[in-house]
Nucleic acid binder design. Structure first.
Lengths: 221, 221
DNA sequence: AATTTCGGATAGTGGCACTATCCATCGCTG
DNA sequence: CAGCGATGGATAGTGCCACTATCCGAAATT
């Protein structure tokens, strides 16, 4: 298959495919002549994976590159692969602010208390510190991590367990697992977050009595 | 307080404060002379709110403007306010692709079955359709909404109920509620998503036996 | 033979969130 | 009350990102 067919089948414009080739997200096609190349099923699958990560997961091109590198690195176990996808999905960088450092320390202490096996450099720690820091700036001062995060811990663990359990068992062939993990992490995040928003809207409608506007419910048959 | 103090207290650079003033995210300070203005506590609070939405929620400046407009519109009830924050947090636009439309229709049917009171134009519906569409492109064809989203419904509802219940009761003064809702929606999303990632990492470590790399756990005391 | 398409390279675009520079006051300091 | 840094307001520029457009000479198709 040539580039135009690859483009047509995947729905990605030709210039964008070329861009991905340049960036190394897609391996080059097999050259049949100095200026003619053939692409296969593998290219198509990878292209779809890239789009899923970018469109569903909101992953940056640079981060997609990291994920793909992890995918291709057969020395990585499934656990590391999952980590690399997560880290790509959660861009975060620590700050210098002393107040932030305190929030970060509190978050880490809180997580230690949970006994979870989580890398010390997990970006999600940083995100939690951001949240705690922001809340503290607003509400005078106290705000313990436990008060903010506590209610979520059980539920998060429950969901995460179910998600991991739904993946192929440890012995499965790596190829089958790898992409499933990459797509799974990105999509489950998006799916749950959207469902949660909808459930919140429903709960809010029940508690606060729905919209006060006519125009806000234009076609609510 | 003048602009430099506003900047120092909030940690936002002066040029950025000026930018927000230009964009109408911050109301102008009270002019004490043709080129001298005074800012108050309200400006500081609003500035912090803007930063929380931008940094924690990842909301765009344009969307922040919408949220602030909803906040200032006293004719809006709490429910509508919550909606406007959510809609700002979830940028989404429908597509033309017929396959996508089918996924969208399936999502809507699925949601109808749940009986949730959700606006027909809720962007979260679009996000769900994106997810379903992406999954269908990957896995041959079937993929029912119920299979993908079903496991999350109960949990999402449970979390959302708890979050809404933790907010001030319907009769509370609007001012107190408004910002709480805006910040709450943005931060709880970030917090839960980060916790879920960590729980996933922990579950994956337990199931897949942790990292296969030395370097992946450099300081895992 | 004529037209289309190709791969590859280089350069350009549009959006976004700031950031820098100017300039004529302002107002506190010495 | 002179000097000097800060202020408000306006205009323009920056850096990043994810593409997108154009060009070219060489296939491939018609």
């Amino acid at each position: 298959m040539r580039i135009s067919e690859l483009s047509r089948t995947s729905g990605v414009p030709v210039p964008t495919v070329k861009f991905y080739l340049r960036e190394g997200l897609l391996p080059p096609g097999e050259l049949t002549s100095p200026n003619q190349a053939a692409y296969g099923e593998a290219h198509l699958r990878r292209l779809r994976l890239i789009r899923a990560l970018v469109e569903i997961g909101g992953v940056s091109i640079a981060a997609v590159k990291d994920v793909l590198a992890a995918l291709d690195d057969t020395s990585l176990g499934v656990h590391d692969l999952l980590g690399s996808v997560q880290y790509a999905l959660i861009p975060a960088q620590p700050r210098d602010d002393p107040e932030w450092r305190e929030a970060f320390a509190d978050v880490n202490a809180f997580l230690d208390g949970l006994g979870w096996r989580v890398r010390p450099d997990a970006p999600a720690r940083i995100r939690l510190a951001d949240v705690l820091h922001a809340l503290r700036r607003r509400d005078g001062e106290p705000v313990a991590p436990d008060a903010v995060f506590g209610p979520y811990v059980q539920v998060a663990a429950q969901i995460a367990d179910a998600e991991i359990a739904s993946m192929a068992p440890p012995g499965s062939p790596r190829e089958a697992l790898a992409e499933q993990v990459a797509v799974g992490v990105a999509t489950s995040e998006a799916a749950f977050s959207a469902l949660r928003a909808l459930a919140q809207e429903d709960a809010s409608a029940r508690r606060y009595g729905g919209s006060t506007l006519e125009s806000a419910r234009p076609a609510d048959q």
